[in-house]
Amino acid sequence: MIEVLGLSKHYGGRKAVDDVTFTARPGRVTGFLGPNGAGKSTTLRVLLGLDAPTSGRALVAGRRYRDLAQPLRTVGALLEGAGPVPERRAADHLMWLARSNRIPRRRVREVLDLTGLAEAARRRVKTYSLGMRQRLGIAAALLGEPDVLILDEPVNGLDPDGIRWVRDLLRDHAASGRTVLLSSHFMAETAGIADDVVIVHRGRVVVRGSLAEVTAGHASLEEAFFARTGDRTGGPR
């Protein structure tokens, strides 16, 4: 379970996130949607303890992220702008992550196999394509077999096979009773995966509910978004 309660994050006078409240429940994929600059990544960074909130609270499994003793065993996260040093080998990147949270060494091999990177495990990350880097980020998120997955734009750079693989992975994860929070600006893609939807626009939640509730009376999730925001440009302030 993920609970975000009245969360705000201001940079000087700019409100990147403004009083955001939502819940992502176990057994469901929650789509966290909005255009670029809407405040999605900032919300996730605060939720994951990387950035301090200006006000409000964000809890994972009932606790602040930084209060989790071995967080990678509870939460697997992929964040844009948080990646490995390019000169390090992929296997070494996963190995230090595993050691930091007392995750068994065998999990490194397992997630490399799962993400199709086993053959390239000894290559340095700087030689990876964008899609391979994305797979490595997902491998890192899955390393601790977490109950909660928080993924920021996970299909960026993936080919159609990769997109399908991520879609199946997230559905399977939720189907096993675990929590998935999927942040994306691709509304059509997310509509194919999500059970619940939270749409943010200009730092504020404009609508939240089940996919059926949010899209009721609209041809698509995208149309529902434009109807709620009255904004066809969708850009940041």
């Binding site: 990387l50 967080p71 990678l72 490995p84 930091s100």
Partner: peptide
């Protein structure tokens, strides 16, 4: 962005 990954692992 290595620091972000590091803090995710050891917050």
């Amino acid at each position: 962005g290595q620091l972000g990954v590091t803090v995710l692992a050891v917050p």
